[in-house]
Amino acid sequence: MKLEIDGVHFNYQSQSVLEDVNFKLDHGEVLALIGPNGSGKSTLLKCINRILKPQVGSILIDGDITTDYHQQEMAKCVGYVPQEESKNFPTSVFETVMMGRKPYINFKAQDEDLEIVAAIIDELGLEDIAQRNINQLSGGQQQKVLVGRALAQQPEVLLLDEPTSNLDLKHQLEILNLIQAQIKDNISSVIALHDLSLAARYSDKIIILKDGKIFAAGGLEVLTPENLEAVYEVEVSVADVGGRKVIIPERPI
């Protein structure tokens, strides 16, 4: 599976939000989108998921333009975890994860659907709370459930918009370790992140967005003090700690 973003432009009314965005993502790769608020990260994820339609450019999966996909085909192909849910309905953990099987269900869930959902709940360590109301869970538990719902779609592309926002350090690591473990050879993932050190730790590729444009793209080598200072307007230090790149903010410029 290959995800290709080809010359994507998107405007809100007359305001340019994305301009000439291009990149490719191969099997099993994780791409981190980083950049300040308003740089276009969430908008780009919504364009990939066809929530928004670019004015110019194409999004292709295995060479096929996603605008040609039927809605059900799109739901089977792309899983999406938004930054926050506008409203959580009073459903159980099991029922919420089962919603990810909707593209595969005609009239009622089959044994295969039940088995897939049960396996995901087990893998995510949610079996003890499978019948609990999702609104009664902690933020970290709710985020696991939403990831589980997306995984139940058996997607080829997994999109996550700030999956660690509002989580403590333990749950941030749990969520990203979970996502990393679930990315198999046939799944690619695009993750919007604010934490630059987490982006360095969990991604294969990095795109730095500034004002809707790609400022820099590549591997960990793009996380230089010069690039980050130019984009975030903050002096930073980049250190190697235990073989991992760590970004330390110093002061506003």
Rank of each mutant, 00 (worst) to 15 (best):
L196M: 15
V21P: 07
D168P: 14
L159V: 14
L137Q: 14
G7L: 15
K76P: 02
A150C: 09
K205T: 06
S86G: 13
Q83G: 13
M74T: 06
I129C: 12
Q154K: 14
N135R: 15
L196K: 14
L44M: 09
Q142N: 07
V97F: 12
T224S: 02
L228N: 00
F23G: 05
L31Q: 06
L209P: 03
P163G: 14
N11L: 09
V97H: 12
G218I: 03
D64L: 12
Y202R: 01
V246N: 11
Q153H: 08
D113R: 12
K53T: 13
N106Q: 14
G28S: 08
N177A: 04
P90E: 15
E115T: 06
N166P: 04
Q154C: 07
Q136I: 14
N227Q: 01
D122I: 04
R132C: 10
I207G: 08
E174G: 00
D6K: 08
R201L: 01
A217D: 03
T66C: 10
S92H: 02
P54G: 03
F107P: 10
I129H: 10
L3F: 08
M74Y: 05
E112S: 04
N227Y: 01
A152K: 02
L228V: 00
K205E: 09
A217E: 09
L198R: 04
P90C: 08
I105P: 07
L3V: 07
G140N: 02
L220N: 12
A181K: 10
N22H: 11
K213W: 06
F89E: 06
K108D: 00
D20C: 11
A181Q: 09
S16T: 02
E4H: 04
K245N: 03
H171Y: 15
